[in-house]
Structures are given as structure tokens and as C-alpha cells.
Amino acid sequence: MPRHGAAGAMSGLVLHGYWRSSASYRVRLALALKGIDYAQVTHDLRLGEQSAPDYLALAPHGLVPALEHDGGVLIESPAILEWIEARWPSPALLPGDPDAAAMVRAMVALVACDIHPLANLRVLKTLRQDFGASEDQVQAWMADWIGRGFTALESLVARHGGRFAFGDHPTLADCVIVPQVYNARRFAVPLEAYPRLVAAAEALLALPAAGAAHPDRQPDAAG
């Protein structure tokens, strides 16, 4: 199992992921924004390494990311994000007000539950292999589901956003929105209809810590 370590890994955390996995990117962003050191282990999704027996022993669902900590293993990025926030509450990525925190969580769910699962690698493979979808049809599928979710997010950012997706400080909402915008750009999904959403993503990417979490800057990034 290839291991790529961040300097020191003082926290004892090991992030199992893949450079272009948007769910892994979410976790890297949260860790970076909080200044938490960690080591990385790569599982190349293109080669199916997430289905290897040694990884399934850690993460039975066969997906990345998984986060090892002090003998335990966490799976599913929304749960990992909440755990990070609970363990390292400063700087906060959830507002203290319950109503505001619920709205941030709703933004997270819009991406993690409504958009991402329908444009995941295994879904796209199923469309191609089991239903004979052409690349144009797969592209249209992704654009449709991303567009539906982004339309809702654009409205929410218009109501609640400031410099970032919710208010003037980064939140967990930004941690999931930025990777989804990255995916949209990767698949050439038009973004002109979502100026507030894109501006919030760009604001987070302008932070040095967030830049370090970018897929292109990971040790396993393809050349």
C-alpha cells in the first residue's frame, strides 16, 4: 500500500484517499483550514485499489476517503468532517448558532447527498457498462444533476453567503462546494449561471491553506 506522508503527521491521522477524489478533497480542505497535520495513503481508483482486501478491512464500503486515528477508522466524508470539527473546534467550520449550523449542514448535504452520489465513478461506470450510455449521454447526466444542485446552492448562497458560501468565514459548506466546482470544471459543466457559488469557491481557494489541499498539489497527482 503506497504511503505518502505529510511532514511530521503530529496528529497521528492517516488519510486514505486519491488525489482526484472530491470526497477526499473535502477532508483535506477541512484538515488544512484547521492546520492539522496528517499522512496520506493513496488508493488509485482507476486501478480499483479501493476494492483491495487490505483496504476493505479498513473501509468495508470500498470507497475513499477513510481516516485512521488512534486505532480507529472513520468512513464517509460528512461524518469525518463533523468528527474533525468536534475534535478540533478552532477555527470553527460550523457556526455556533443552531439555525446557522443547520443551514451549513444543509449545504453540505446538497452536495454530499444530492449531487455527488449521482456523478460518482461507480455510477458513471454503471451507466456506460450496464446501460450502454455514450460519453455524450454520461456528460449530459452529470451536467443535469450538477446543475440541479448548483441551482439550489446558488439560491442559498445568495441568501446566506458573504465572502464565503455562508457568511464571511469558511465553513464545512465551502469544504464540499469547492471540490464539486472542481469536478464541474473538470467535466466542462457550464458555471455562468452560478456566479455567487463560484465566487465563494474562489474565495476559499485564495486562502493558502486551501491551496495546499488542491488535487494538483497532492503527492499522488498524475503528471
Rank of each mutant, 00 (worst) to 15 (best):
A112E: 15
P78M: 00
D130N: 11
A59S: 15
V157E: 09
D54Q: 11
R163C: 02
E82H: 10
A66W: 12
A23S: 15
G17C: 09
P53S: 03
R122N: 14
A57G: 06
M107H: 09
V181C: 05
L204V: 03
Q139V: 05
E202V: 04
L58A: 03
W88T: 10
A106V: 07
G12Y: 00
L204S: 04
Y25E: 02
A165W: 07
D174E: 06
R186Q: 13
A210E: 05
H61M: 14
A184P: 02
A221V: 04
R87W: 00
H69M: 11
H160K: 00
V14H: 08
Y55E: 04
R28F: 00
R185M: 05
L156S: 09
V41C: 11
G167Y: 00
D37I: 03
L153G: 07
D70Q: 15
Q218G: 00
A143F: 01
A66R: 11
A199L: 05
A210H: 05
M10W: 01
I146T: 13
V111E: 12
G17Q: 06
D168M: 02
A133I: 08
G5V: 10
W141H: 14
V157T: 12
A173R: 03
K125Y: 11
M142P: 00
D54A: 15
Y182P: 06
D54M: 04
A52I: 07
Q40N: 00
V27G: 02
A30I: 11
A6M: 08
L197R: 04
A143D: 11
C113T: 13
V73I: 13
G149V: 10
V138I: 15
R159M: 09
A173F: 03
G211N: 07
I75M: 14
N120K: 13
F131I: 07
A165N: 08
Q218V: 00
A188H: 05
D174I: 09
A112Q: 13
V189W: 00
Y18N: 13
M10H: 06
R28D: 00
L63D: 02
A106F: 11
A209D: 07
L110Q: 14
E82I: 01
I177C: 02
C175D: 09
A30M: 11
I36H: 01
W145C: 02
L110R: 13
W145T: 03
M10N: 02
A57L: 04
A92S: 15
P53G: 06
A7F: 08
V178T: 12
H169T: 14
L93P: 07
P60A: 03
T42L: 04
E202T: 02
G72P: 02
T151R: 12
V157A: 12
V157D: 06
V123T: 15
Q40T: 02
A165C: 10
L67Y: 01
P190A: 06
I146L: 14
L124Q: 15
A221G: 03
G132A: 12
A102L: 14
A57T: 07
V178M: 05
R26I: 02
G62N: 03
F187D: 07
V176H: 03
G167V: 00
L29H: 06
D97P: 07
P98C: 13
V14R: 14
A6C: 08
V198F: 01
V41I: 12
L47N: 14
D174W: 04
W141N: 12
S155E: 14
Q50T: 12
A59K: 05
D54L: 10
R3C: 03
G71F: 08
Q137K: 14
A39R: 05
A9Y: 01
